[in-house]
Design a protein around this nucleic acid. Structure first.
Length: 299
DNA sequence: AAATTTCGCAACCGCACTTTT
DNA sequence: GAAAAGTGCGGTTGCGAAATT
């Protein structure tokens, strides 16, 4: 047996509200409140409307101090940051913006803000690619021919993205640290399984630098077996410690303290705020590129 | 100027959850 | 504890307005 309908659908008016209906609903609620029962409300005031429809009309349009349209830059930024953090939980987002309704924010996001953010991210992406390219050139010059790993070349990358950069195993942690600072701490990934990492994942961001223990082992394998995929198992040459262990150790030391976390698993910048972290938790999965988490700013 | 397409938004729908009986 | 009633939420729809062809 299905659920009983909340009202007699056949005898209920649908569609836009007339000014008379608005006035009647508003006057009643202002004088008597909702009485804690939306279903009974339309009968009491002689409206041929579903109780849910009355509730929606009141919450989204008639109640006092509602703002419509004219979203400020600050509101845009709050919505974007929260959407990135918690997704389409419009009621929670609306609770952060006095006078805004979840419906309004949802509509605004779907029709305008999403496009605005997307356009901004594309522009940023292009700027970052250009900047990183020039930084890499500097870095290469300074670091005595640091390598771009052949695995990065073999990744079928869209031309909009820059291949991940695998630092020379002899690079010191301090040098890497300086490079990261220059890059503004963006899109950094350390992971244990680089070949499982989809470079253009759900964040649509490619890590600029891939640091992980096996980079060094793989480099060793290339040295040992050649650079042209002669090695059947790309992870065959991986190893830890020994001759490349020191540079890995240096690298991790260089990263530690920079973002409050440094390990061979994942490095990412701080979250939007500690409040969000408290409220919604955060993902520590390995192989997961954490979205850039500084507040979005659309100016 | 007319026809067509796209956009913006109010309102509806269905479902999950909570409260009441 | 179960069923019914009520509430709240997110996704979707439909329609008028604006933009484009």
């Amino acid at each position: 047996m299905g659920r009983a309908p909340c009202c007699d659908k056949a005898n209920v008016k649908k569609g836009p509200w007339s000014p008379e209906e608005d006035a009647r609903l508003k006057a009643y609620i202002e004088q008597f409140g909702t009485g804690g029962n939306w279903i009974a409300l339309p009968r009491k005031i002689g409206l041929k409307r579903c109780g849910k429809s009355c509730r929606l009309r009141w919450l989204n349009y008639l109640r006092p101090n509602i703002k419509h349209g004219g979203f400020s830059e600050e509101e845009d930024n709050i919505i974007c940051s929260l959407y990135i953090t918690i997704g389409s939980r419009w009621s929670i987002i609306a609770a952060q913006l006095p006078g805004r309704t979840d419906n309004d924010i949802k509509n605004y996001w779907n029709t305008r803000l999403k496009k605005k953010l997307l356009g901004k991210q594309q522009r940023e992406q292009q700027a970052v690619v250009r900047r990183i390219h020039s930084l890499k050139q500097d870095f290469d010059k300074n670091m005595n021919n640091a390598i771009i790993h052949p695995a990065a070349v073999s990744m079928n990358l869209n031309h909009d993205y820059e291949a991940p950069y695998y630092p020379n195993p002899n690079t010191s942690g301090q040098d890497v640290r300086e490079l990261i600072i220059k890059m503004g701490g963006r899109r950094l990934v350390c992971c244990d399984h680089p070949f499982e990492l989809n470079p253009v994942d759900e964040t649509h961001q490619l890590p600029s630098l891939v640091f992980e223990s096996s980079n060094f082992g793989q480099f060793s394998g290339d040295v040992q077996y050649g650079m042209n995929n002669e090695v059947e198992d790309p992870t065959a040459g991986m190893f830890h410690g020994t001759e490349f262990g020191d540079s890995l150790h240096n690298l991790e030391n260089g990263l530690e303290g920079l973002y409050g976390m440094g390990s061979s698993s994942l490095v990412y910048p701080p979250l939007v705020s500690s409040d969000f972290e408290e409220s919604f938790g955060h993902n520590h999965n390995h192989n997961h590129v954490f979205p850039q988490s500084t507040p979005y700013c659309l100016q």
